[in-house]
Design a protein around this nucleic acid. Sequence first.
RNA 1: UCCCGGGUAGCUCAGUUGGUUAGAGCGGGUGACUGUUAAUCACUAGGUCGGGGGUUCAAGUCCCUCCCCGGGAGCCA
Length: 431
Amino acid sequence: MAFGPAINQLRAHEGQTVTLHGWVYNKRSSGKVRFVILRDGTGYLQCVAFVKDVPQEVFDLMDLVSLESSVTVTGVVRLDQRAPGGVELGLTGLTLHHMAEEYPIGKKEHGTGFLMENRHLWLRSSRQVAILRCRSEIEQSFRDYFYQNGFTLLDSPILTPAACEGTTTLFETDYFGEKAFLSQSGQLYLEPACMALGKVYCFGPTFRAEKSKTRRHLMEFWMLEPEVAFAGLDDVMALAEDFLVYVVSRVLDRCTEELKVIERDTAKLQNVRKPFPRVPYKDAVAQLHALGSDLRYGDDFGGDDETVLTQQYDRPVMVHRYPSAVKAFYMEPDPQDPGLALCVDVLAPEGYGEIIGGSERIHDHDLLLGRIREHGLPVSAFQWYLDIRKYGTVRHGGFGIGLERTVAWICGLPHVRETIPYPRMLHQLYP
RNA sequence: UCCCGGGUAGCUCAGUUGGUUAGAGCGGGUGACUGUUAAUCACUAGGUCGGGGGUUCAAGUCCCUCCCCGGGAGCCA
């Protein structure tokens, strides 16, 4: 099948007769003149015909054709101020591929429950198209940044024998009679790999069986994790900062139209420049106390605390050196204060919360062995992980960034469910 | 698991102190209209008021219970 120009390229074809394929987005009529709005995935095109200008069967079909029917239109491209977008098609031919049944999603408002049940159709709406284009651009920029900065992509396994971090809930599956779990992080596999390749990253789906039911949680989400040999906490923070600045500027540069459709206030994204504030945990706690929080020193931040704290800044905030007790077992203790971990959480502005968590990893064999025992983890299962500390161990570190939370923040969305084509949420596995 | 808020037409919702035959907008159908912009206008079809039980002369409305959905907490990206 020969494809004509895309709707968003039509302006260059003024005066020409073109043929386009798409779906009927809307239709209107006024007696002897009829309008069919065509949608092709790149834009919307008003197609116009007067009764005297086209064969009767074409004019009739313009009225009979149902919303979302698939059609091919032929006509002359012309500029007209009255057309949405300023370009329209003087329709001469209309052929029907399939007459759609009554379309469930109307032009008026719908509830999110109904839209989620019809996610496969909801994807066709202009807002969802714009969001998914932004996601695609963000995902591409994730890969491009690390490719351009000398990292090697290292795919980590999805089926794993045990909890990477021990405690949190995992999806269990059967592996020829043995228990296997869907991965919740590739980090433990990246640490050995960075000793082979220097700078590595992985990017893939991640699974958490936590029964979380909030606007920030999915059971299945995409996470990118870099890991760098010879890197300390300051290097990890600098990397996270440089990376986020790149991603945001890339979206501002290439997704202008999409951000307009979503009605994102891009002024807030323009602020995402170096340097990001680096706030020690203990200073953040003091700051929150001054703002009225009853957070206890030693506790991790709650959702409200994160929101209040990030509202004090116009760009992402890097909170570092949390108490070791609330962080993962593999994090290097701060030599200045061994009760603290050399870790960082990057909190997105506007109340979007944690999008990055990273740290310097323990590189001393005996210290790590002690931590594994303290956490009640089976030493034998972690032998390969401990091995790295026996053969030329070095300081190293990295972070993980959640794609969906990043998309939600950059697009200014109230809920992560719109950032992924088919969200997997608590009690929702359909469509 | 816990705490809130919901469930009425295909969709989004209203429904007073418990009181006659349960309403609107959108969508569907029929018709009108030569430049519509979520077109407009007229007419029309469309309901097990989430399920079960109870109180009452009378329940969409009050009580009990179960189911489902949404938001939040914990946990996390």
